[in-house]
């Protein structure tokens, strides 16, 4: 197991970044609620959610010590979010 292959972030910093990403996600939801910026808002929500998932995987679940697994989980979550948010974006808002 390659210890410290990716540098571990201090937990407090990880928590603060997760909170900030949650606030940015809420901003994305506000954008997605409008007309012209809907797609940008949905993209922002998906992107910030992916970042949050990756931070939890890397620093809470300590997959920063297993970079191959971290990449695998990240790709799976990226594909899931891409499928879900593309479906939502393709159907026009009522």
């Amino acid at each position: 197991m390659p210890h410290g292959a990716i540098r571990e972030r201090p937990l407090l910093l990880t928590w603060a970044v997760l909170m900030a990403l949650s606030a940015l996600g809420a901003f994305g939801a506000w954008l997605a609620d409008g007309g012209t910026l809907r797609l940008a808002g949905l993209g922002a929500i998906a992107l910030f959610t992916l970042f949050k998932a990756r931070l939890i995987l890397a620093n809470y679940l300590e997959l920063s010590r297993a970079p191959g697994w971290l990449a695998g989980f990240s790709v799976a979550i990226f594909l899931l979010l891409a499928m879900i948010f593309c479906l939502i974006a393709l159907v026009p808002a009522p």
Partner: peptide, 21 residues
């Protein structure tokens, strides 16, 4: 705690899909 973090991770996805999008 790994199980607890999985619960955390799943909620982040559920929250984005049900509440934000």
């Amino acid at each position: 705690c790994a199980f607890w973090h999985m619960v955390d991770l799943v909620w982040v996805l559920v929250f984005a899909v049900f509440y934000l999008s």
